[in-house]
Design a protein around this nucleic acid. Sequence first.
DNA 1: AAATATGCTGGAATCGTTTCCATGGAGAGC
DNA 2: GCTCTCCATGGAAACGATTCCAGCATATTT
Lengths: 335, 335
Amino acid sequence: MESSGQRRTTIKDVAEAAGVGVATVSRVLSGGSASAGARERVLAAAARLDYHPSALGRNLRRRRTGGVGLLVPDITDSFYARLADGVLSCARSYGEPVTVGVTGDDPERESELIGTLIEQSMDRVIAVPSGDGDVWDPVLRAGVNVVFAGRRADPDVPDVPAVLADDRDGVRTAMEYLTGLGHRKIAFLARRGQSQRVAAFTGALAALGVPVEDDLVVHARASRDSAYAAAAGLLQRHPDVTAVLAGGNILGEAAVLAARELDVRVPRDVSLIMFDDVPWAELCSPPLTVIAQPAQDIGYRSAELVLRQGRRPREVVLPSELVVRASCGPRRPRR
Amino acid sequence: MESSGQRRTTIKDVAEAAGVGVATVSRVLSGGSASAGARERVLAAAARLDYHPSALGRNLRRRRTGGVGLLVPDITDSFYARLADGVLSCARSYGEPVTVGVTGDDPERESELIGTLIEQSMDRVIAVPSGDGDVWDPVLRAGVNVVFAGRRADPDVPDVPAVLADDRDGVRTAMEYLTGLGHRKIAFLARRGQSQRVAAFTGALAALGVPVEDDLVVHARASRDSAYAAAAGLLQRHPDVTAVLAGGNILGEAAVLAARELDVRVPRDVSLIMFDDVPWAELCSPPLTVIAQPAQDIGYRSAELVLRQGRRPREVVLPSELVVRASCGPRRPRR
DNA sequence: AAATATGCTGGAATCGTTTCCATGGAGAGC
DNA sequence: GCTCTCCATGGAAACGATTCCAGCATATTT
């Protein structure tokens, strides 16, 4: 472990070995202009000494850290894991390292992590925003390139591009499907911060002429426990509900478990549609009908937006898709 | 976007505002000794100017990047996602940023990512090693603090501590369970690089007096496609197999899908045990019996090892646990 | 009271790179 | 043949922190 005496080979060593000045070495290595002879000798010396330029020195001089920061609520959630995978995959093709932070959907942790990022002089950040948009003001004023992925900040932050899935369309399709099966009492099991989707839900129902009942929208926090409690509470307190839309895969999982525990059969007693297609949706019993989200694409496109300089569109909307499996059936009154 | 004129407040500004030298400011802010008066004025000035020290300057001087690097094969795989979550959670309590890289279990990508890490002067790395151990030699020689998580490198690298789950014990318990149910023809659906688990598998069977057949160990690459192909191939080519052990959750998922597709009923026709407990194991039909892996703990302990200086044990082994659900039954000859 | 010990203090060096700028030589145009 | 232009070149100045070291004031000891 102790590397006493081991000194990192610097640009100075290369310059000396090649018989040129440090400026020339720097130019050759970063694509500047140099004579053929000099270029050749520098390259040879660099290879011989196994020289790797230090990102530290470069970053300090350039006054910015390379790489991009990524803030997600929960890396354990398949949706965010796939989103992160998309970001990582794009960043890799640019050779940029990615620093990941988990916010737990907690505004306080989020602003704490933002603090770390600006301390690191990260100037490019992709975030699934948790708290209100104000925390982003100092970041933007510091000239950081921010892109929101998957959702917008709640009091919206202008000038920040966002890459989103088409929730509105996904929900509309799902509601048409459910009402087509005869359902009228449809509940939405939402996570806090899904105001976007809640709006799409009530909007879609209203457009279909179905009365919207406010207390059929129940909210849970981000944890599995909270999701289960909300799902069980919903099924118990509202025996007249015949269909449930779960706002994410954690909530869908909770709904399946709660239904099983309470002896509510799917789809006989209640129909279930879940946001986000995950590998296990097909393995579940019954296989779950889902609104598939292009999580990986969202991540990839966000990374592209943040890494590729040039004009940036204010919003990119990617399509959602209803994948019909076996968790929905015709309406039958429960009990 | 343009922050013209906006200059970052530096330690020099604080020194000037507080009427002291930069050295004193640095000492106050990093816990060195200073007089009460000076300390107070520095703190006041720093707060007034909203001064945040630049990690860039600090790191250059210290000749090391703060933070830790994390290399996993696939962040989309629940096991590695939970492992990463453990690392992130521990790192957060130390205030250290984490840079994540995805190797895809590809030695070439792995060594490429290692290159990026040493270029960043990352001096602490947690990795689930993919390639052979040799790629780590230059890293270790550079004085980087490496910890392996989840598995060891294949030609083992000495001096690198590892945090592992007790595969041997988990497999032994699982094999005792299956043989107790009467199974003799037991197959292992493995991912490449699981030599550790394969050894545990053959070892456990031998100890139980069950003949080990080499071609009942089938190998897949890391992708879902490859896993499915391997699972389907196994079930088709070996109709005499009555029990399958899947080496990971992707492989287990593939086994369930393949069995369903081929009309092989679980557990009537074949019993199935999967490595790694995932949330959907319980939702699956039938609920899967699994060897639970403490993925989150593995990550947390690895991070602790790499972040806390002091003597480091060569190996930490965490317990696996057999969770019995409903995917195993008594042996019945298929067909 | 003199000598020594202690401890706070700020200037300056350092980390490894990029980039500005002055210099010098060579080729081109007249 | 002279000047003008152009380009390659290397020295030196940043970037923003930490830390060594010498200086000086104050406390302690004899």
